[in-house]
Amino acid sequence: MKPPPFDYHAPRSLGEALDVLAEAGEEGKVLAGGQSLIPLLNMRLAAPAHLVDINRLPGLAAVEAAPDGVRIGALARHAQVERSEPAAVAQPLLRQALRLVAHPVIRNRGTVVGSLVHADPAAELPAVLALLGGSVRLARRGGTRDVPAGEFFTGPLESAAAPGELAVSALFPALPPRSGTAFREVARRHGDYALAGVAALVGLDEDLRVTTARVACVSAGPVPAVADVAGACGHRPPASADWAGAAEAVRARAEPEDDIHATAAYRRHLIGVLAERALRDAAREALNA
């Protein structure tokens, strides 16, 4: 089908964009890469009166790797972030996750920040932001606020970005020393949204014993929930840590749902298997770090 009619706005500056969004209020929608919004418009599942196309705004496409992490601007495309060497060095989980997001052609247009605001429980990047404890910077006419990941994802396809607000960037914290990450998922077809997926972060102390072990799951509940499984692993070297016990703890906490692609029980099973694999992979990376 074709999109319903809307008033199209193409602001040339951030100030102008925020003015238009403030005036449009509930009736306004931001258009970034369009890789989630345009399918919804084509299917007529969304019908905003005003579409605010941010593709012409200057200065929003930056990907900046600093000691505290990688700050990604609202117009940085998935493909651009995936290619960024400084971003991959500062936080390897970004590239690991981005390779699992859709197909290369979709990644040429889709934006990282758009994926966060879209807040699909099946999407990889919200899980990454949640796992790392990152944040999203929201601008509105007259102000800016940073919202931590734990408060940003409020429900399936719902984020803390309010009408009139524009997400200008997101911060993905850097990988701490002696830490490793991994992303494992299962999809029916390559490039599809995952039936289930697990992002893991493992950190070691100076004696190379596990001190941090966290995972965030995809397609396992309404929002990307983070599970701290350091206790379940035991304060031991990776070779003797109880990864199976940790994975069982993750599996027990997951809240997947049935849909036409998979049953909740199958998803729960996958989450257990993937959690163990992702934790072991992340621990290996940590030992190599």
């Binding site: 258009l31 890789q35 399918p39 859709a102 052609v105 040429n108 247009r109």
Partner: peptide, 27 residues
């Protein structure tokens, strides 16, 4: 499909492949 799934609408935008069904002409 107009969902971005089939790929048959792929064109090159400044040399880079994109889905023309998921891009507005005005953009």
């Amino acid at each position: 499909c107009e969902h971005g799934v089939c790929g048959c609408c792929t064109v090159l935008l400044d040399g880079e492949p994109v889905r023309s069904c998921l891009t507005f002409a005005v953009t």
